[in-house]
Design a protein around this nucleic acid. Structure first.
Ligand code: SF4
Ligand code: SF4
Lengths: 128, 128
DNA sequence: CTAATAAGAGACTTTATATATCTATAATAG
DNA sequence: CTATTATAGATATATAAAGTCTCTTATTAG
């Protein structure tokens, strides 16, 4: 079990954008170069962030990506969910079993992880 | 990112063994049947638990698996680590960067998850 | 001792997912 | 119109998970 590289790229891109001049679009080429990843692949990842409303994309010359208006509220968990999906880490075969003991432990542990990631925002990393 | 099925099988097997008469070996065939998994595959998973000293295996007629002496101390985290390995969930490209901000957040969140899993033991599920 | 039983080991196959790449299309600034 | 830049979809490659098969080793009931 590991976070995907795509999640890593998404987090770094958000951090880069947060450190840039606001409202000035940054092209995927530049973002990809800083992370040693192909622009087309990064583009595909960033499109997920666009669809979740975390960043805006601007086509055409001088286009690129900018952070969305509400970017200061975006948490690590939001970004991870956008890339990895929102389903639980633990797949139980019988969700209907109300007596289940294993599931409770696994889900409560996952909740601790998510709480921490929900409380950390990209904007926390920028404000010094 | 998801826990593997192998982890699921390992957790369930530990729970089954904990509910059985102590010291009476349970064969892999029986354990596999209860989980709808092939015996040879489950065997491969259980061998990992044997190597970590969590369970004992007994060959030959009337053989099978028993919990190890210290089984009451075995945590969820121990079992998960035995199957999934102990490496971090977050792979950072530059571990050497002391200024890293993303890594700190990811590792501290993982720590919260692990703390919870470390505090929950299989024996907690059996004692009523 | 022998035959049946049961775990372990290694090679292999299959399936699924992650990680890309390639090409074509759409939007926009100048 | 043309150069630039994002988006979409098909395809390809790599890696890992999940499962099978066969042979070996250990134990014990009889
Ligand atoms: S014990 Fe819980 S985790 Fe296991 S099969 Fe039942 S419901 Fe699922
Ligand atoms: S910022 Fe942190 S996570 Fe990102 S490359 Fe640097 S050390 Fe790694």
């Amino acid at each position: 079990m590991k976070y995907s590289k795509a999640t890593n790229y998404a987090l770094h891109t958000m951090l880069f954008l947060a450190m840039e001049t606001p409202n000035k679009p940054v092209g995927v080429h530049q973002l990809a170069e800083r992370q040693n990843v192909s622009p087309t692949y990064l583009s595909k990842i960033l499109t997920k962030l666009v669809k979740e409303g975390m960043i805006n994309s601007i086509s055409g010359a001088n286009g690129g990506y900018t952070l969305s208006k509400n970017w200061e509220d975006i948490s690590f968990l939001d970004i991870i969910h956008a890339i990895e999906g929102k389903s639980s880490l633990f797949d139980c075969c019988l969700y209907s079993n109300p007596e289940c003991v294993i599931k409770d432990v696994m889900l409560s542990a996952e909740e601790k992880l998510e709480n921490e990631l929900r409380n950390k925002k990209i904007s926390d990393l920028v404000k010094k």
